[in-house]
Simulated assay, not measured.
Amino acid sequence: MRPLGRPNQRNSRRPRQHKTRYAVFTEGRVTELQYLEKLRQRIRPQHAEFKFIKIGKDPSAIYKRCLRVLKQDNFDQGIIVVDVDQHERLEEMLDDCRRSPHVNALVSNPCFELWLLWHATDRRGYAETRECVRLARINNLTGDKDLNTKFPIASFPEAVTRAQQAWSELAPNKKGPNPSSAMPWLIGLMTTPPQEN
């Protein structure tokens, strides 16, 4: 006999929904990883899990590693965060991602520091990597090799707006104009639960 005052265990349980598991691979070994951890702490996604993995190689090597990890660790999707930089094989990797149902690449042009800058300033016009890195330091967003501990992570909605204004067609698996970043696509995954059919 069930004790009074306690709900029937069978009827009160809701079916567990599967959380989508994303593996996010970063080309940068420090700054990108620190940023993504801060972003996850700020957003606290309930509908999905995000694991961040630093690789720091050319895009083709990141793509191959991504496929191995997805297979080994049973992730649902892989996301590659990469800069334009001087990568000769960037377009090749983007083609691979376009053909893959499980991997997407998010490109920042010219570099991830531009995305960081958009948290603090409305940077428009053509940008060089060196200039973005310098401005990120001047605006106290980064130190020598890492993210400032007081980075304004709460300003990510402003960064999203600036990125959308710079590249209205922003999407994964594409290299946008300079300046641009597809990072808002990842933030959309972190903030919006998938629609039920």
Rank of each mutant, 00 (worst) to 15 (best):
N11E: 09
Q86L: 10
R14K: 04
R21N: 02
T121K: 13
R6Q: 14
D144M: 12
G188M: 13
M1Y: 15
L117R: 02
V133Q: 08
H87L: 03
E92Y: 15
R2A: 05
E37V: 03
F50H: 02
L33R: 14
E37Q: 14
V69Y: 13
H102E: 07
L36M: 03
R130V: 02
Q17D: 00
E49P: 06
W115V: 02
C97S: 00
G56A: 06
P7W: 04
E32M: 11
P59H: 08
K54M: 15
S12D: 08
R6G: 09
P194I: 08
L33T: 12
E49W: 02
G125F: 15
R134V: 07
K71L: 05
A163Q: 07
N74T: 04
Q86N: 14
G188N: 12
A23G: 05
A48R: 10
V133C: 03
Q195T: 15
I187Q: 14
T31G: 06
V84K: 00
Q195P: 13
P177H: 11
T142A: 08
M1F: 13
D122T: 12
S100D: 05
T31I: 11
R124T: 05
I80W: 01
A182H: 04
C111F: 10
L116Q: 03
R137I: 06
L36A: 05
I62W: 08
E92K: 12
P101G: 15
T26M: 14
K145S: 10
P59N: 00
S12N: 14
N197Q: 15
N104S: 08
I153P: 12
K54T: 12
G143Q: 10
V84H: 02
K71C: 10
E91H: 05
N104G: 10
D73N: 12
R124H: 04
R68M: 09
T121F: 15
I187R: 09
L117V: 12
L67M: 07
A136G: 02
G125V: 07
S155Y: 07
R134K: 07
R124D: 02
C111I: 04
V133A: 08
P3V: 07
